[in-house]
């Protein structure tokens, strides 16, 4: 395979440079999405009626093609990475908000009651109880968001070489070098898999308290049986 890593000079990056760029364009939006999703999800947990409309809005935004986003954004942010990253961040919300809401809601009622009864204020309760217990669900959401974000970065190629590894696809056509397209697809896939593995590792490190062998179970293993007969027991 001669020229597999021989990147055309008009892309202005080496192969490893493209990888760095790709990771930045793929991961920063997820991080931004998470920062945005955390308070939004908390509002949805706090005010239940807010959840369906928020979910609806994120779904509609997800359905907007990235090209349409680019057309709107390009007037403000130009042909930059930012123009690529903003839609990606918005897309990540559709996965992250439900993941966080489900995670926070999965905290057993009695655990919350115990925290309140021990004198936890709302902020301390959120940071020290709800968020850590929601961690597995949040990481599960992050995995989906990250993988899809990494594969979506390539569309940035549409607005003047902002697609990182995706630019190789255009280059492959332009210079009639199909090996560049193969390189693009393979490298992107490997990046996605590695990022996913890193998140799995993160979850394992974050949750020594989860029963082993439950994989991606979203709910913490806390006894949930609560038999209370209707009448009195005699």
């Amino acid at each position: 395979m001669n020229g597999f890593f021989d990147i055309p000079s008009d892309l202005q990056h080496s192969w490893s440079g493209l990888i760095g760029l790709h990771l930045r364009e793929g991961l920063l939006p997820v991080a931004a999405g998470l920062l945005l999703a955390l308070p939004l999800a908390q509002l949805c947990v706090r005010f239940r009626w807010l959840y369906p409309p928020v979910l609806g809005v994120t779904t509609v935004l997800y359905a907007v093609p990235s090209l349409a986003f680019f057309v709107v954004l390009i007037d403000y942010t130009g042909q930059t990475e930012l123009t690529v990253m903003i839609p990606l961040a918005v897309y990540s919300l559709v996965v992250l908000i439900p993941a966080i809401v489900d995670g926070v809601r999965s905290v057993p009622e009695e655990t919350l009651a115990a925290a309140t009864a021990m004198g936890f204020g709302p902020v301390r309760r959120y940071l020290q109880v709800q968020l850590p217990i929601a961690a597995p669900a949040i990481v599960a959401g992050l995995r989906v968001a990250t993988v899809s974000s990494i594969s979506l970065v390539s569309v940035g190629a549409l607005i003047g070489n902002q697609g990182a590894l995706g630019n190789l696809l255009a280059a492959a056509q332009k210079y009639d070098r199909p090996e560049l397209a193969v390189n693009s697809v393979l490298t992107t896939a490997v990046l996605a898999i590695l990022c996913d593995a890193a998140l799995v590792l993160l979850r394992i490190l974050l949750t020594p308290w989860m029963p082993r062998g439950t994989g991606d179970r979203r709910e913490p293993a806390v006894r949930r049986a609560r038999p209370e007969p209707e009448g009195a027991t005699r």
Partner: peptide
Amino acid sequence: RRSMGYVIQNAGLFPHRT
């Protein structure tokens, strides 16, 4: 609340703490 211990059904332990 901190001057009153509280015990509930199913204990309500923090699953993420030892």
